[in-house]
Computed example of a mutant assay.
Amino acid sequence: MVDHVDSVRRSAIMASVHSKDTRPELIVRRTIHALGYRFRLHKRDLPGKPDLVLARHRLAVFVHGCFWHRHPGCSKASLPKTHQDYWREKFAANRERDERVYAELTTAGWRVEVVWQCETRDKARLRQRLAETIGRYTKP
């Protein structure tokens, strides 16, 4: 298959895809900070380098893109029309890695929470969900 955009444009598109400091991640950070919680970012000493780590509460938060991590039932988790075998393999590897990382963190005594990209659109609902989630983990 031939790419429908030239190599310069494709390079620019791929360069704009980031793994850190994405818009959904920044929204989640602001929300958790506004709730009064403090956190660390991308802790390298933890499996999977969670996007946010609330060490006091032993909580690792991942902010996942619906497309890359295959959010079940989400319209953003569509399969590209070209090179489908490649994409299926890529997405399967991403999901397997995610599950392995969650298991490693859980075994090490961490709680894991995933916030999906599409959940960051409704800020009030996100705030309520995060307040309830983190509240479950706070020590009395």
Rank of each mutant, 00 (worst) to 15 (best):
E96V: 12
W68Y: 07
V28E: 03
S16Q: 09
A131F: 05
T22W: 11
G65H: 02
L46M: 06
R95G: 07
T107R: 14
L52S: 08
L46A: 06
E99Y: 03
A55R: 13
L126R: 02
C66N: 02
R9N: 04
C74F: 02
R121F: 14
E113N: 08
M1Y: 10
F62W: 03
I32C: 10
E99I: 05
A34H: 00
H83T: 01
S7H: 01
W116S: 07
V101E: 12
S11H: 11
A60I: 10
D21P: 05
P24D: 05
A93D: 12
S11D: 08
I32N: 06
F67L: 02
Y37F: 14
D51Y: 05
E25V: 01
H71G: 08
L130S: 10
I27Y: 09
R95N: 09
G73Q: 05
L41P: 07
C74P: 10
R29Q: 07
W87L: 01
L26T: 06
K76G: 00
V63M: 01
F39N: 04
F62T: 00
W87A: 08
E96S: 14
H4A: 11
P50M: 03
M14V: 08
E113I: 03
R44W: 03
E89Y: 08
A77M: 01
P80S: 03
D6C: 14
S78V: 06
A60D: 02
I134S: 12
H71M: 06
A60N: 01
P24L: 01
K81F: 00
R88G: 11
T22N: 01
Y137M: 12
T82Q: 13
A108C: 02
R111N: 15
A131L: 08
A55F: 03
D85H: 11
S16I: 04
R40W: 07
R111A: 14
S19E: 13
E96P: 05
V53Y: 04
A34P: 08
D85P: 07
K139W: 10
G65V: 04
H33P: 00
L105N: 11
R97V: 07
A103F: 04
F67A: 04
H71I: 01
V53I: 04
S7D: 12
K90E: 09
E89S: 15
A77E: 09
S78Q: 06
R88I: 11
E113M: 11
R136A: 12
R70C: 02
R58F: 00
T120M: 01
R127C: 12
E25I: 00
Y86N: 04
S19F: 06
V17F: 12
T106K: 12
E99V: 11
H83Y: 15
D45T: 12
V8F: 13
C118Q: 09
R38E: 11
C66K: 00
